[in-house]
Amino acid sequence: MTVRQVRGPAVRERVLDAAETLFHRDGIARTGVDAVIAEAGVSTATLYAHFGGKDSLVAAYLERRLARWCRVWDDAVAAATTPEDRLLAVFDALARFRDDQPATRGCAFLATAVELPGPDHPARAVVAAETAHLRDRLRSLAADLPVADPDALADDVLMAYDGTLSAFLRGAGDDAVARGRILAGIAVTAACAGRREPGGV
């Protein structure tokens, strides 16, 4: 097999692109380092020089994906014009993110968490960071709404979000994100209605 040598600063991104493609398509456990090397067109020494091994490669690919997701979500929140829309912007971000990414089996972070061999794997910290970011930001956005329990509302929105991701595993169509947003919107409307007192605004 002829290996195409890649030089310069783009080599790291080249390896990460290859890893992301293969991890999504075949799963992490089934994807060996040799497959990533062949897909990226780099030498074994190059991959190990940048990542040290497969465990660190998995963590790095998730870190890059999380950073990309956060940027897309930031843009969606910034484009929203009401507190409700800012909370539901997580679904707008999901739609945009999926449009820009290769087809996946669902949530890369949840899928990775299932496949990781033990609690000390370096990628577990990235999975935990993604979960914390989702919960903390949704709770912060929910706190801008006139609801009695912002944390509970954020949890409801997160459940609708996770359900949307699970729907893709069951072969849901392109309307899954829109339907998930509608369900989350129902939770928002109910929570806001419960906050209002008779005669109040």
Rank of each mutant, 00 (worst) to 15 (best):
T21Q: 13
A40V: 03
E197Q: 07
V6Y: 00
G171Y: 00
G185L: 02
L116V: 05
L141D: 11
D34F: 04
S140L: 07
Q5W: 06
A143H: 11
Y61G: 12
G41D: 12
A111Q: 15
E130I: 01
I186L: 10
A187C: 09
E39Y: 08
C192E: 14
A190W: 06
H121S: 02
G171N: 06
R68C: 01
A10I: 13
C70H: 11
G163D: 04
D75K: 01
I182H: 10
V157I: 08
D55N: 08
R71G: 09
V90R: 14
P146D: 14
A187H: 11
D120C: 06
L22I: 09
R170T: 15
P119Q: 02
D136V: 10
A40M: 00
A178S: 14
L57G: 05
I37M: 05
D144G: 10
A160S: 12
D120Y: 03
F168T: 09
I186C: 11
T46R: 01
G171D: 00
S140F: 04
F91W: 14
A76D: 10
E20L: 10
L116M: 02
A184P: 07
A193C: 00
A79C: 06
L153Q: 14
A143M: 11
E63P: 07
R98P: 06
D34H: 10
G185R: 07
M159D: 14
A154L: 05
E39N: 06
M159F: 13
V201K: 03
I182R: 14
T81D: 13
G194R: 05
E130H: 12
G27T: 11
A190T: 04
R170H: 15
R64Q: 09
V42R: 07
A93F: 15
A59I: 03
V42I: 01
R4T: 02
W73K: 05
D75R: 05
A132M: 10
D144Y: 06
D74H: 01
F51R: 02
G194V: 01
H121C: 03
L110W: 15
R135K: 11
D162I: 03
D156Q: 02
V127C: 14
V42F: 10
A79T: 12
A67P: 03
K54I: 02
D34I: 07
L88G: 10
A40D: 04
F168H: 10
A40R: 00
F168A: 08
G200K: 00
T81L: 06
D174L: 06
R25E: 13
D174V: 13
G180Y: 13
V157Q: 11
E197L: 05
D151Q: 13
E197Y: 08
V15R: 12
A125Q: 06
T189F: 02
L141T: 03
P9C: 10
R65S: 10
A167G: 14
L57C: 08
V58M: 04
E39R: 07
Y48T: 14
R68S: 08
T131G: 13
G106E: 11
D155S: 13
V177I: 11
C107Y: 12
P146M: 00
F51N: 06
R124F: 01
I37Q: 11
T112A: 12
F168N: 08
L110H: 15
D120Q: 07
